[in-house]
Computed example of a mutant assay.
Amino acid sequence: MHRSVLQPQSSSFVARLCVAGPVHARLARGSAGNGCSCITPGLWKAKNRGKVRLRFLLDFGYATGLRASELVGATLGHVQTDARGDHWLRVTGKGRKLARVALPPLAWDALAHYLAERELPIAPMRWRPETPVIGSLEADSGSTISSVRLSGVLRRFFLVAAKSIEADHPPLAEKLRRPSPHWMRHTHATHALGRGAELTTVRDNLRHASVSTTSIYLHSDDVKRARQIGDDFTTDRRR
């Protein structure tokens, strides 16, 4: 059974690391150098490009639930806005199937911020369609990163995370030492369902062939379940 690895309570995957207390603050410092990896204007310098890209990867990957191959294959030409103002990303998934994935506010804002840090236009009408969503760290480069490179970037992040929390949370640290880019996809599904999204909605956004595949992300909260059952069967409720 798949389970989300980190449990962000705010909408932003990275905001959870930045503000949720000493353990996550250490995690953020370990991945970004001195201080939290929150974006500030002008970070797109040689030594900061990796930090900016990492933050974007975490928020965009978490908000969309994209596969690693879909993340590295995405270009600005694949982004669409419909008549209602909703944003979508055209993807080619497993079996070369074409589909659309919703871009919620977290993903859209992360993209706009990331483009600004890369000194690229934010307005869609000024985009170059071939520009990769995830850019290379080389200045003025129009290339993207490979799936192998993406895996390496995320692996290093989670290994730093493991080291940062191993004294306080050894079991979680041990799990973080076995990272996978798919974790963000798993976490996306788990949190969407946990926050009330319909099973069929999450299935369609993840592009699962069967709703039974999506249902593996339905996890009960043991604390909540114990409390609710306990409230229904208290000893003072006698007939």
Rank of each mutant, 00 (worst) to 15 (best):
A189V: 10
S220V: 14
D82Q: 11
V79R: 08
P22V: 01
G33Q: 15
I165P: 02
K47F: 11
V160R: 01
Q7K: 13
P132R: 00
I145N: 03
R118W: 07
G194Y: 02
T92R: 02
L17P: 00
L137T: 09
M125W: 14
R53T: 04
S37D: 13
P41L: 06
T131P: 01
F60S: 00
D140Y: 07
Q7I: 06
A112K: 13
T75A: 14
T190Q: 07
K224Y: 03
L27F: 11
H169Y: 12
L111H: 00
A28Q: 05
H78D: 09
W88R: 06
C18I: 13
L17R: 00
L137P: 01
S141A: 09
A161F: 05
A68R: 02
H182W: 01
C18S: 10
W88K: 03
G93P: 00
I229H: 14
K163R: 12
A161M: 08
P179C: 13
L193V: 13
K94G: 02
R155I: 01
V91L: 00
P121D: 11
S151H: 09
W183A: 03
L43W: 08
L172F: 10
G65T: 04
H208W: 15
S143M: 10
D231R: 13
A116C: 05
F233S: 06
V5G: 03
L71I: 10
A110R: 00
L98E: 14
A99L: 08
A226K: 08
R155Y: 05
H188Q: 09
A107V: 06
M184V: 03
K51R: 15
V14F: 06
R29M: 08
D236L: 09
K163L: 06
N205G: 08
S69D: 05
G135M: 04
L66R: 00
H219I: 07
H219L: 11
G61C: 06
I134P: 00
A197I: 03
W88I: 09
S220D: 10
H219M: 15
K51Q: 07
V5R: 02
R128V: 12
H169M: 15
H2G: 07
G142F: 01
